[in-house]
Computed example of a mutant assay.
Amino acid sequence: MAKKRMTGAAVLTFEHISAVVRAVGLDGFMDDIISGLRCAGTNLDTQATVVLERSGFQYSKPDVGLIEWMPSMELGRAVGIKTVGYHPSNPTQRRLPSVLSTTSIHDTATGQLTALVDSTLLTALRTGAASAVVTHILALPTAAVVGIVGAGAQAVTQIHAISRVRQIKRIIAFDTDPAVSATLAARLPLAVPVTVVETAAEAIAQADIVCSATTVDIGAGPVLPDHGYLPHVHINAVGSDFPGKMEVPVALLRAALVVPDDPPQCLREGESQQLELSELGPSLPDLISNAAQYERYQQEITVFDSTGWSLEDLIVAEIALDHARRLGIGMYTDLQSTPADPYSPYEDVLR
């Protein structure tokens, strides 16, 4: 049998990503991401790692949506750039995920593209993993009841990831579309009783941990109540990604320790857009690197403002690539021109 080619840029399609995750196992792959994020936060060197705020295009025609790019760089090694599209009408109008994304990785020595990775599943997984990392620090060790507000795709990875750091015994779920919340239990990779309720207030009342993952319209929030929580509740708010879009009431934010994953980005388009910089708690990497200091907040209300830290995307893409190389999954191809004579741009055209 001919040996598989391992030169050129590595390409992982959605089929390759699915094959990798199946081979590693959902739990094992999620654990790898959680570990990778913890390691990145603990060892972050801001002189060697540059994480830029995401930027891009937002529009309302033909439907409300955005396409953004999320860049990060490890100096002297690699640049990762995820291009992500968010179109909340996709599931109902086109039978497509609301979030679609692709990550490219480039060698900083040469500028060459080294990898191109479908990141739609990886984005959902790393978003869940980030919540798990924060939940492990800020939720009570005995936390067992999870309240879900917004029971779509992100709810699945939120629950799965949290189950890797806390023993979930019950899920209470609410979605504005009863058909979505009714299928949540069937979509989960773990067997936990799911109680479907009719209001967000019911979903949060008995929850030790709350995850809000909605597609609330700009200006239509918040979606969470401003009272009725357990005094130790930890909230993972992952749905805010537009200026003017928010899930958590400002009164609740001001009563809580708020952890922004990327403070400037969160102040612009996360829950933190309702606050001043002085009202924010530690950033995600600061929380991770000083975990023992912040565990005392487990008895208080805490909120993780999760807008997506760009370094997460480079981390999860490289985890997938490492497993793919080990398993012999994926393909390699020369996507860029590399003529034998770098001064001859027509070399391949005229030969």
Rank of each mutant, 00 (worst) to 15 (best):
M1F: 10
M6C: 06
T7K: 11
L12Q: 00
T13R: 09
E15S: 03
V24A: 14
D31P: 11
D32P: 00
I34W: 02
L37R: 14
R38E: 09
C39R: 15
G41N: 04
G41V: 10
N43R: 15
D45E: 15
A48R: 14
L52M: 07
R54N: 06
G56E: 06
Y59Q: 08
Y59H: 06
S60F: 02
K61F: 03
P62H: 07
V64K: 12
G65V: 06
G65L: 11
E68S: 14
E68N: 11
W69H: 13
G76D: 13
R77C: 11
V79M: 12
G80V: 06
V84Q: 01
Y86R: 02
N90K: 08
N90D: 10
P91K: 01
P91H: 09
T92N: 07
Q93L: 06
R94I: 13
R95P: 00
P97V: 06
L100I: 15
I105E: 03
T114V: 14
A129P: 09
V134M: 03
T135D: 13
L138T: 01
L140I: 06
P141K: 14
A144F: 09
V149Q: 05
A153L: 14
Q154T: 03
Q154C: 03
H160N: 12
S163G: 09
R166F: 03
K169L: 04
R170I: 03
R170N: 13
T176Y: 06
D177A: 07
P178I: 01
P178S: 09
P178G: 04
V180N: 00
A182M: 12
L184F: 11
A185P: 09
L188Q: 02
L188R: 01
L190V: 11
P193M: 13
P193L: 10
V194R: 00
V194L: 01
T195H: 10
T195G: 07
T199K: 07
A200D: 00
A200W: 00
E202P: 13
A207S: 12
I209T: 13
I209Q: 04
V210T: 05
C211T: 04
A213E: 00
T214L: 11
I218A: 07
G219L: 01
A220W: 02
G221K: 10
G221I: 08
P222M: 06
V223W: 01
P225F: 06
D226Y: 05
G228K: 13
Y229T: 07
N236C: 09
A237M: 09
A237W: 01
V238R: 02
D241H: 12
K245N: 14
P249N: 13
V250S: 14
A251L: 14
L253Y: 11
A256I: 04
D261W: 05
D262K: 05
P263A: 07
Q265E: 04
L267P: 01
L267T: 04
L275T: 11
L277K: 06
G281W: 01
S283N: 02
S283G: 08
L284A: 06
L284M: 09
P285E: 01
P285I: 03
L287R: 00
I288T: 00
S289F: 10
S289N: 07
N290L: 15
N290G: 15
A292Q: 15
Q293N: 15
Y294W: 15
Y297V: 02
Q298E: 09
Q298G: 12
E300Q: 14
I301M: 09
V303Q: 00
V303P: 00
L314C: 00
L314T: 02
A317N: 00
E318R: 11
G328I: 04
T333K: 05
S337W: 03
T338A: 05
Y346M: 05
D348N: 12
